[in-house]
Simulated assay, not measured.
Amino acid sequence: MKPVLIVLLLPFLVSAEVYKCDVGGVITYSQVRCSAEAEVTAYATEDLVTASQQPILEANANSAAATMDRLSDSVKKRDMRLLVNKLKLDKENKLKQRDIKLAELKSSKDQALNNLAGAVWEESLSKEMAAVAIQYDTDIRGIDTEIDRLVDELNRI
């Protein structure tokens, strides 16, 4: 039985003690003992739910559960789309940072050609450029992998 169904049926299954009192010739019912001679009567609301109403209650509970499931899926999809968009922006920023860093190193490398010790410096800059490219490419591949995973999960929902 789904939790929503239990919650919806709970008010119909409540029972309580009710006191029947004769106060000055008038019969009254109360949750509190109204006199020493008060009779305890059983009071249950389950009689209010007839067998013909039971399928309607279950249908309403199932409908509510289905609506909650749809809302939950909708919220999950929205959150995943937002995360995918954030990751795409992160990827664009990484690409820009990589390009800026490589452009700076290329500029330094061009200056190395005008220097007497430029050959050693140029080789060092080439290695640094390769390391920068590898670092950013690894970060970008990680972002792409996460985007692909989220898109696959979005398509399954």
Rank of each mutant, 00 (worst) to 15 (best):
R149M: 14
N115A: 12
C21R: 02
E58G: 00
D152V: 07
A131Q: 13
L71G: 10
S107N: 14
T138R: 04
L116C: 01
D47F: 07
Y29V: 05
S124R: 09
D144V: 02
K88T: 12
K88N: 14
E39M: 04
A103L: 09
D22M: 09
A103F: 04
Y43Q: 07
A131M: 08
L95G: 10
I140M: 10
Q54E: 03
T138D: 06
N85D: 14
S72E: 13
S52N: 10
M68F: 02
L57V: 01
L113H: 06
G142D: 03
A61H: 01
E58D: 08
D79M: 10
V120N: 10
S35K: 05
S108D: 14
V84A: 05
N85R: 09
N85S: 13
D22V: 08
L5H: 09
Y136H: 09
C34M: 08
L9K: 06
Q97V: 07
E46H: 13
G24C: 03
L13R: 02
Y136S: 06
S107D: 12
N62M: 05
S35D: 15
V132Y: 04
K127M: 11
L113R: 11
P3R: 09
G25H: 07
A16S: 12
I157F: 02
L57M: 09
K109D: 05
K106F: 04
A117D: 13
Q97E: 15
P55L: 03
A130C: 03
E122G: 06
L71T: 07
L150C: 02
N85L: 07
V26D: 05
T45P: 00
E92F: 08
F12H: 05
K76R: 15
L105S: 06
A16V: 11
V75S: 11
A42Q: 14
Q53V: 02
A103W: 04
P3C: 08
V14F: 11
V7I: 09
S126M: 12
V18Q: 03
A61Q: 01
S108C: 11
A112E: 02
D152Y: 10
L116A: 15
E146T: 11
I27D: 06
K20R: 15
Q97Y: 11
S30R: 11
I157Y: 03
A42R: 14
R156G: 04
P55V: 02
E104H: 09
V18A: 04
K20V: 06
L102N: 01
K96N: 12
S124D: 11
A133R: 07
N93I: 08
I134G: 00
